[in-house]
Amino acid sequence: MRLRIQAMQRRTIIAIVIAFVVIAIVTLYFIFDPAESIHAPKCVFKTLTGYDCPSCGSQRALHAILNGQLLDAFLLNPFLFLATPYLALVAFTAFSKHKIAVKLKPIVQHRAVIWFYIVLYFVWWIIRNTPLWSVG
């Protein structure tokens, strides 16, 4: 019984910490444009090579979304608009014991779907650094 309470308290603390961090990040990126701010962390890959990494543009996209510019955000990094919902689905099917999660897991975490993600990751990485991709 005591163990269960301790486990619940730990979960509550983790949830509060996560909520606090999310609120802080959302507030910061709502107010500050990472493209203008020198304090926004720069992508190491881009700094070293000059090429975009697959996630480059995510901070600017977050700023754009929070300010209601959905199309701008999408054009900055369309890959993230697939990857983030997919990540959420994977997390849901991995951590939830809800019967929908149990039913979805074999589809969401199917080998073919995972491989589609890997291929898309590299295809997007290459294409965004070619003249084929000139937006964003």
Binding site: C43, P54, S55, S58, L80, A83, A91, A94, I114, Y121
Partner: peptide, 17 residues
């Protein structure tokens, strides 16, 4: 456990594959 969440998080945050 296949730790898929952490693998995907790594590809999205690390810039390193």
């Amino acid at each position: 456990n296949n730790y898929l969440v952490w693998g995907i998080l790594a590809t999205l945050f690390c810039c390193l594959p």
